[in-house]
Design a protein around this nucleic acid. Sequence first.
DNA 1: CCCGTGATTCTCT
DNA 2: GAGAATCACGGGC
Length: 195
Amino acid sequence: MPGLRDVLSGPVLEVAPRLLGATLRHEDVAVRLTEVEAYDGPDDPGSHAYRGRTRRNAVMFGPSGVLYVYFTYGMHHCANIVVGPADRPSAVLLRAGEVVDGLEHARERRGSSDRDLARGPARLCQALGVHLSHDGTDLSRGDLTLTLADGPPGDVSTGPRVGLRHAADRPWRFWLTGDPTVSTYRPAAPTRRRG
DNA sequence: CCCGTGATTCTCT
DNA sequence: GAGAATCACGGGC
């Protein structure tokens, strides 16, 4: 049976759907992933890595199996799992999940209905208590761990990515068909010009 | 639909 | 450097 690192080092479009049903745990809270999105290396205009390495995206250029966390819109954190071969900066954005352990703690952090605890990339981070200090964390040890699902999680759907201005139409979003914790689809906000 | 919110990145100098 | 645009979002109406 291949190890976590072996699975995650494959091509991002193969790895992303395999992360559905996997469990990401931070201390007492665990989330079963129900929706993810692929960002594929230097040729993907939607990826943070598209314009090369910066301080923010540096961990995308490192080994697979670590968490890439960034802060955006002045208030939200989003988490990705770095995947693919080491020379290719690819990652899988964790868009939504179901809280399967530490429900009380997740409720304290979120103050929402149970369905919405991790329904969206920033909500997922908030429910898990993941923030910038976790950027670059290795997921195979420590208090932040990823466990792959034992078998196929069920039907998987594919569709366009959410909220990007560039290359959103690539059907690189994967989710568990019919799962209620999958995020609501919001197309990218139109670019507003200052007037 | 609107808009908060502030770090990051871009585009000039 | 400075100033401006951008932003893989979410809550509220």
